[in-house]
Simulated assay, not measured.
Amino acid sequence: MGEYNKGILGAFSGKVGPVVGANWRGKDIIRSLPKKSTKEPSEKQLLQREKFAFVTRFVTPLGPMLGRYFGHKMGDRSKKNMALSYHMKEAVDYVAGRYEMVYEKVQISKGDLLGVASPRATADAGGSIHLTWNDNSGQATAKPTDVLIAVVYNTEKHSSEMFFKVAKRSEREADLQLPDFMLGDEVECWISFVSEDEKKYATSNYLGRIKLI
Rank of each mutant, 00 (worst) to 15 (best):
E3R: 11
Y4H: 10
Y4F: 15
N5V: 06
I8Y: 10
G10K: 08
G14H: 08
V16T: 13
G17S: 06
V19P: 00
V19C: 04
G21V: 03
A22S: 07
R25M: 09
R25W: 02
K27M: 07
D28E: 06
I29D: 01
I29E: 03
L33V: 14
P34M: 07
S37P: 00
T38V: 09
T38L: 09
T38W: 02
E43H: 08
L46W: 03
L47N: 07
Q48I: 06
Q48Y: 05
E50P: 00
E50S: 13
E50N: 13
E50K: 14
F52D: 11
F52K: 08
F58D: 04
R68Q: 14
F70I: 06
F70N: 03
K73D: 10
K73W: 04
M74N: 13
R77N: 13
K79C: 11
K80E: 14
A83L: 10
L84C: 08
S85Q: 15
E90N: 13
V92Q: 12
Y94L: 13
R98E: 15
R98Q: 15
Y99R: 10
Y103H: 14
Y103Q: 13
E104V: 06
Q107L: 15
I108F: 07
S109I: 05
K110R: 15
V116P: 01
A117D: 12
R120S: 15
R120C: 09
A121Q: 11
T122I: 15
D124C: 04
D124L: 14
G127C: 06
S128R: 15
L131R: 02
L131D: 01
T132N: 11
N134Q: 13
N134A: 12
N136G: 05
N136M: 04
G138E: 07
A140I: 05
A140M: 10
A142P: 00
K143Y: 02
T145K: 05
L148H: 01
I149H: 10
N154E: 06
H158L: 12
E161T: 09
M162C: 07
M162F: 01
F163L: 11
K165S: 14
V166D: 03
R169Y: 02
S170F: 01
E173L: 04
D175G: 00
D175M: 08
D175Y: 08
P179G: 11
L183P: 00
L183G: 00
E186R: 12
C189L: 14
I191Q: 01
S192C: 06
S195Q: 03
E196R: 03
E196C: 00
D197R: 02
E198H: 09
T203Q: 04
S204A: 09
L207H: 05
I213T: 08
I213S: 08
